[in-house]
Nucleic acid binder design. Structure first.
Length: 289
DNA sequence: ATCGCGACCTGGTTGC
DNA sequence: TGCAACCAGGTCGCGA
């Protein structure tokens, strides 16, 4: 489940259920989801076997289980990944990719299910506290060590459009297409406004809105339009009912009533209110025309 | 150093 | 009914 609130829902679910558990068997049913593990599927399985899980941590959209030897099981859900807790013997999900058998008081399974396989798992050597594989990922805005001033400064130094910057995980992590659009709608800023054209106040407000919308979504169990995005128990969140911009093409803006517009952006879509979030002058015409 | 783009996957929906 | 085109919550690596 792609964005920060959905990943945090999963992390919290894991923290409730797998801390103290020991990995007793690992089955990799498809090699692709462990492609980033340098040891390959067999080495991945060997590195987990017998390890005890001591913590469930997250940065942005990455999450990891700290292991008793200082390594970590690092995961990313990509576009369609799920981490599900199941009873042994429960029938395999159609897109089950990796199965971990765990033992705590009783036995249960932690399953990585991923239709599109953009996500994946790997064992991070020495990564229990901070996996080196994600050293390039910035802190996320719900992390108390997130540096607001640094973010504002960096954004205002780049010409690049503000939505593109919100999606840049090396600047700020955890924000994806939905919450970027929602934060921009709340702030009344068009995503193509260059960072250099925004005031300190505007970027600070935008950051606050990003925090608020993601915190609110977290309180609802995350955003889910369908069964693809679920918590460790397979349940969906309810925040989709609270979205103001994302996915609302043609529907009236909740603030001014103008129809929400959808435009192509980075091989996907952006949703915005043309009145509350006026298009910047420079990008009203396609470049070159 | 920073950018914009295509690649990486599967499957559901839409339109001819 | 068939089939192609389009769409989907993300990230990485490449050439410019």
């Amino acid at each position: 489940m792609p964005e920060l609130p959905e990943v945090e829902v999963v992390r919290a679910g894991l923290a409730r259920h797998v801390l103290g558990a020991t990995v007793t068997a690992v089955e990799v049913l498809h090699p692709r989801p462990v492609r980033r593990d340098p040891r390959g599927p067999a080495g991945f399985a060997d590195a987990l076997d017998g390890r005890r899980i001591e913590a469930a941590r997250r940065r942005g959209k990455y999450l990891w289980l700290a292991l008793d030897n200082g390594d970590a099981l690092l995961g990313h859900l990509g576009m369609s990944g799920q981490l599900l807790l199941q009873h042994p013997g429960a029938s395999d999900e159609r897109h089950l990719r990796v199965r971990l058998l765990l033992r705590h008081q009783r036995q249960f399974e932690l399953r990585f299910v991923d239709q599109r396989m953009f996500g994946g798992l790997l064992v991070s050597a020495g990564g229990a506290v901070s996996p080196p594989e994600i050293a390039h990922i910035a802190r996320d805005p719900l992390d108390e060590e997130f540096d607001d001033d640094l973010f504002v400064h960096r954004v205002r130094r780049r010409v690049s459009g503000i939505k593109r910057q919100l999606l840049d995980q090396t600047l700020i992590s955890g924000v994806g297409n939905i919450y970027a659009d929602e934060a921009l709608w709340r702030a009344g800023i068009h995503g193509e406004r260059p960072g250099t054209r925004l005031t300190k106040r505007q970027v600070t407000d935008l950051l606050r809105h990003a925090r608020e919308v993601m915190t609110a979504a977290l309180g609802e169990g995350g955003t889910s339009f369908d069964a693809l995005y679920v918590n460790v128990n397979g349940e969906s969140g309810y925040f989709d009912r609270s979205l103001d911009a994302y996915g609302r093409e043609g529907l009236p803006c909740d603030r001014c009533g103008s129809p929400i517009r959808r435009v192509a952006f980075m091989n996907r879509s952006s949703y915005f209110c043309p009145r509350c979030q006026p298009v910047p002058r420079r990008s009203r015409r396609p470049i070159g025309s």
